[in-house]
Nucleic acid binder design. Sequence first.
DNA 1: GCTAAACCTTGACGTAGCGTCAATGTCAAG
DNA 2: CTTGACATTGACGCTACGTCAAGGTTTAGC
Lengths: 251, 251
Amino acid sequence: MDWSIQEISKLAGTTSRTLRHYGDVGLLEPSRIGSNGYRYYDDGALVRLQRILLLRELGLGLPAINEALRHNSDSPGALRSHLQWLRQEEDRLARQIASVEETITRLEGGEQLMAENMFKGFDHTQHKDEVEERWGKDAYATSDRWWRSKSGAENEACQVEISQLSADWSTAAASGGTADSELAQSLARRQFDWLSGMPGLPASGGKLSKEYFVGLGEMYVADDRFGANYGGKADAEFVRDAMAVYAEKHL
Amino acid sequence: MDWSIQEISKLAGTTSRTLRHYGDVGLLEPSRIGSNGYRYYDDGALVRLQRILLLRELGLGLPAINEALRHNSDSPGALRSHLQWLRQEEDRLARQIASVEETITRLEGGEQLMAENMFKGFDHTQHKDEVEERWGKDAYATSDRWWRSKSGAENEACQVEISQLSADWSTAAASGGTADSELAQSLARRQFDWLSGMPGLPASGGKLSKEYFVGLGEMYVADDRFGANYGGKADAEFVRDAMAVYAEKHL
DNA sequence: GCTAAACCTTGACGTAGCGTCAATGTCAAG
DNA sequence: CTTGACATTGACGCTACGTCAAGGTTTAGC
């Protein structure tokens, strides 16, 4: 007892195109091929097809399905790892939804579509490649995880803090003071303190590493994103210099 | 002040390939193109690029981003509809996760990776919404549990039985007999007996409810899935009529 | 002035899983 | 014999780029 390609496709609730595709990728071959080239499927193929479709509905990819069926159709191994992936996706989606909601809220509050960008460049996570090269992959990953793990409220508080700091730097730079002025140094200390609150950053003697702190200042100048969010390169240089002075004095 | 393609890609934390792609699809054109064909981007382009990347991280597609930026970069309209889609995805994922977990549990219980599809359309559980509306949630849930609770062997036996019944219906419909022919009526009785074996179905006087039996026949016609598994709408009508005749005579 | 390194260009394939023509051959019914 | 339904292979399309490939440009060092 066998069926034509269209018959079996209807039996299983799919399309003939799908069956041809499964044949092409070696997932389900016809049990017989007529002299005219027609594909015919028997009930063994039907059972396999139904298993394939079941697994597909569960979200597995075709290669994974092939593996699962080839290895042992009744062992939950493939499903377990697939479940992990699904949970990760769920997490990712949840975070993305939270981000979108937050962004909408901020837009409604009259803020610009720049919010995180102001923050960008202030910590090292935006200089991924360079930071990985200089301080190792963990520094980036840890800090990034930390940032992403913050709740909406915490996140917002962070944003406010960094926005304030950012605005104060701008003001100070515009006021024409020097990098070793009291104002600039107090800002450098706030910046240091803020960075100290982030985990995974290079430290020495329990404090944020001097090398890292100075290097970050250099990045601000080298990487124009920072300057782009402020008054330009001059401001970035001002910040860098103030940080360098602070580092020499206190680190 | 403008940057080369690689400079701006690093500034924004992306790649030159991405920038070329954005140029190709008209999402972000270079602000200037040198006589040698080199692309150059100014700070206006940088701002736009950063907005693009922000929206992209939120999961919007490139066309949607283009719309959002062209229409009004600070209106949350696009984000709202995107949020809806994200929530749907979240729902879908949650359901998929539940299904996978259930499947794993059943596999651990020694059950087979069964084809529920052969069975599709023949009982009411495939018409979930409608059956819940007409006969209450219990009818669906009970029957579904019953089905799922069957062991692999039982399940397979069931499959064979229902496949046979299904095939016989097809033959009878194709043979051109009437709904009140002996053949059709014997099939209706087999169908009735089979359904009688399922728990949770509406009954009256110890027998399967006439109303339910007739209604199920109507569903076969109304819901194209049934016809799709057979010879089309005509066959479904044949089955429905035979069932109705049987119900009048015996219920 | 030459050369190698580094950076630029366009072009095209690959990805996941089919949907959707297109051009053409085959089969069952009237 | 014709018509219509169904079959075949082939190839493009879709998302958002990654990844060569082949070849031109600029820059830095000798």
